[in-house]
């Protein structure tokens, strides 16, 4: 299978299920049978790493390398070195920005973000945007693309955390903000945006606090 088919959500899923490190090895750049499969793989894994790092994972736990099938010795070397590095970092929650079980929760959110269509679609557009341009013919610089992508990652992480919290129980904005460590003003904007899109609705007003709840998707 080509590394280009590697789903970023799979990577997140492996961490959710307790993997301490993931090494992805693809063909050398320029040697791809499908022309750009390994470049796409790199884009996808860079995005997964950025998202997971945003969730609190040590980014060194996810590595991408290039080898050909004729480089067995190098392959062994790569593996040994990576395993040694992960051993030094330690198990999940040690050597990461946050510890378990909080990290586990956040990784689940990252998995949802990576599994939802937005990030997957946008990262797939990277080669097109950089070479030919978007639907308006605007060619992106790498910097522009990365800025946009980081922004979507931040939004997606916030949105999925809020939805996950509201699925557990209805909550007021200020309580959500405290629980999720997102500034209350931003939380409010996210909640209102989710309401506009039909994912969230007003549940009740308790004292001074409007309380919002998760709105299950209607069956079509």
């Amino acid at each position: 299978m080509c590394t280009g088919r590697m789903d970023p959500a799979l990577v997140a899923d492996a961490f959710v299920h307790g993997a301490d490190g993931i090494l992805v090895i693809g063909c050398h750049f320029g040697d791809c049978h499908y022309i750009s499969g390994n470049i796409i793989a790199k884009h996808k894994l860079d995005m997964a790493r950025q998202t997971l790092a945003y969730a609190g994972l040590n980014p060194a736990r996810l590595r991408f390398g290039n080898l050909s099938s004729a480089e067995a010795a190098k392959f062994a070397e790569y593996n040994t070195e990576f395993v040694e590095q992960i051993r030094q970092i330690g198990p999940l929650g040690a050597g990461d920005e946050i510890g378990m079980p909080k990290l586990g929760e956040k990784l689940k959110i990252a998995h949802q973000a990576l599994a939802s269509p937005k990030l997957r679609w946008v990262i797939g557009k990277k080669p097109v945007f950089l070479d030919d341009g978007n639907k308006y013919g605007e060619v992106f610089t790498e910097h522009e693309f990365n800025r946009t992508l980081s922004w979507i990652i931040i939004d997606e992480m916030a949105i999925h955390s809020i939805l996950a919290a509201l699925q557990k129980r209805p909550a007021a904005v200020k309580d959500l903000a405290e629980e999720l460590q997102i500034p209350a003003a931003d939380t409010l904007k996210y909640v209102l945006a989710l309401k506009r899109r039909g994912f969230v609705e007003l549940n009740s007003v308790e004292g001074q606090s409007p309380v919002y709840k998760y709105k299950a998707e209607e069956e079509c």
């Binding site: 937005k118 679609w121 946008v122 979507i152 997606e156 209102l192 945006a193 506009r196 039909g198 994912f199």
Partner: peptide, 26 residues
């Protein structure tokens, strides 16, 4: 409303005076 569920971009909403975000298609 399927488009606004998937649009990845949040931006200033003119009609609501910026109180909430709209998506790029909305």
């Amino acid at each position: 409303g399927q488009c606004i569920k998937v649009c990845p971009i949040h931006m200033y909403d003119d009609y609501n005076e910026g109180l909430e975000w709209r998506t790029a298609i909305d």
